[in-house]
Write a protein that binds this DNA or RNA. Structure first.
Lengths: 339, 339
DNA sequence: AACACTTTTGCAAGCGATTGCATAAATTTG
DNA sequence: CAAATTTATGCAATCGCTTGCAAAAGTGTT
């Protein structure tokens, strides 16, 4: 493994000159620079990561924080797509990414504490945003920079984040069902403490209000089939004329679809469904699921760009909104308005 | 951020003593050790990652290599589950993980070159195994340790790996269909250059041969609906009496299922399907998909354990086989044997 | 040709840990 | 009680790189 001394020696200069030459310092003469660059290339030199970070006291790795480890979350490809976006930007900039995970909130926080104490994480990207997140509290306590993907729960103006306009997305999805003639539309969600769900709910409510339609909400995780069936039974008893569902994400939409299709009575009713995320699930479902695409890879890329920019702590925060788009498939049916 | 000097000062000893005390060196007296440990705890001290690695010339991060970036791969939660397993073991050992990705083979190899040159990766875990992988060539060239998840293509005895017994899994899946009365069973795959697919094929062939049944293979990716339909048309023209499919993974099984369900003739035939991976897809499908569970998280954990063990280069390699298990759902139907 | 600038280069001191070796303290022994 | 051991500590070098500052080389001006 070549060191800077080897490069310097081969170029016939001192290590300091070599270092400056390779960093494009203006005070190095052109011929010297060329000699150094050539030598470096010949030796296949890359600065030692640890030494460089130690010397500059500026770390170069981004900590990517996954939500607390719940089987369901890890089976959602959404996160991997965001990671892919982050990683592609980071490797363009010569940065590394490292993951923080934990099977409980405590463990996750502890892992992050260690990462901070070891002092080699430049800043963090949180792949989620939720109410009263202890991770955020920790990062603020240590005054570590972070970017969240999603809408921050608190300190919105002081936090850098990348998000979709989930309120608008909720509205768009709902309006789409309305345009197709639906009037009794239910919003299905699973966890109100996630910021993203709250926003999509708001968007739904706005769309319904604009048309003077009633809000019909259902909180249900469909964790097992029996619970799902009984919840739906109760639901339809109360709201017999619902024809469409806006589900807060594709996975939930599919779970709903599954329960509906398993019951002959419900199946024939051909409910309309729209989900969010345009995940692979929506393509593989039968019928294929209409879904609001949110471009997780893009979210990751933008978050990484902000993280790379490395602003001083007190500068203004950045917010970037990634557009969404409805991808029409076969789970939404046009109906005669009951108007 | 506390340094070892701060700890030493607070404990009233020299930095070297502090260092030794915290590393459990035998030559430090008990009272001194306690003073140091106490001081360290009070200062919330953790050794600087970069400094420590530099001094010991032994890095502590594991590079996790994802397959070349193809949308489909990143939408498969399988990988995230493996990463989760790796990360949980690594953080227990105080190691970091960092990801290597690339949108092309060249880019991936380049990223790995940089990581190696920077000299801060202890060793690598490859989340896939395929024929003539340039990444493997690179790692071998630089004499960097690595563990592969999957069966190595070459140097099986010299490579550490974690895998399922995919041959047996292929046999088991096929036998299960046979037990349910199927006789004309097709094996559906998408990319023969992946070791995992090759092994499952072998397993299928073994099971069919044992029963004197003919091999019926279909290579098809179902990248778009029209291609899928025409491929199947051709297929059924040749093999009209096929009743069951063993698909090399759940995603492919679902794509097949989708095409089958979209055609009224095919739909009524109620083909039986079995997939592999027991991914979330299999639960969300309708009907739910019978699938061979392979426990990706476990694969990741075992790979991480091997990677952590950090054996000298020329020691014997380790191979670990993680058991699989058929998870029965509703996509396999019993039929009267045509025997 | 001597002086005053500029431009380039190199010396040496860090960054925060670890570790071989010398020394100091404690203990045993004669 | 002094000498010989054993045990515990600290000094200083090192890992590979960066960077402030001083020295050297180059340029231009009288």
């Amino acid at each position: 493994m070549a060191t800077i001394k080897d490069v310097a020696q081969r170029a016939g200069v001192s290590p300091s000159t070599a270092s400056r030459a390779m960093h494009g310092s203006k005070i190095i003469s052109q011929p010297t620079r060329e000699k150094v660059v050539k030598a470096a290339r010949e030796l296949n030199y890359a600065p030692d990561f640890n030494a460089q970070n130690l010397a500059t006291k500026a770390s170069n790795t981004i900590g990517v924080v996954l939500p607390v480890d719940h089987h369901e979350i890890f089976s959602n490809p959404f996160f991997l797509e965001m990671i892919r976006g982050i990683n592609s930007i980071c490797s363009q900039h010569g940065s590394m990414t490292t993951l923080a995970t934990g099977i409980s909130s405590d463990e996750l926080v502890h892992n992050i504490d260690v990462m901070i104490a070891q002092g080699h994480i430049r800043n963090f990207i949180l792949l989620y945003s939720e109410k009263d997140d202890p991770v955020v509290a920790r990062l603020q306590h240590f005054d570590v920079q972070y970017v969240v993907i999603g809408k921050p729960y608190a300190d919105v103006n002081k936090t850098s984040y990348v998000d979709n306009d989930n309120i608008q997305a909720g509205t768009d999805a709902t309006q789409y069902l309305i345009e197709q003639g639906h009037r009794r539309i239910c919003f299905l969600y699973s966890d109100i403490s996630k910021m993203v769900q709250g926003d999509r709910i708001l968007g739904y409510q706005r769309a319904m209000m604009q048309q003077n339609l009633p809000n019909i909400m259902l909180e249900q995780r469909f964790e097992n089939h029996a619970d799902g069936v009984s919840a739906l039974k109760k639901f339809f008893a109360q709201y017999p004329d619902v024809t469409g569902f806006v589900a807060v994400d594709d996975m939930l939409a599919l779970k709903l679809q599954q329960v509906l299709h398993n019951d002959p009575d419900w199946k024939v009713k051909q409910f309309s469904l729209i989900g969010f995320n345009n995940s692979i699930f929506s393509e593989l479902a039968h019928p294929t699921l209409t879904s609001v695409a949110v471009f997780p890879q893009r979210l990751g890329e933008e978050a990484a760009k902000i993280a790379m920019a490395n602003r001083p702590t007190d500068e203004l925060s950045t917010a970037i909104i990634v557009p969404h788009q409805i991808v029409k498939r076969h789970s939404v049916h046009q109906i005669r308005s009951l108007g």
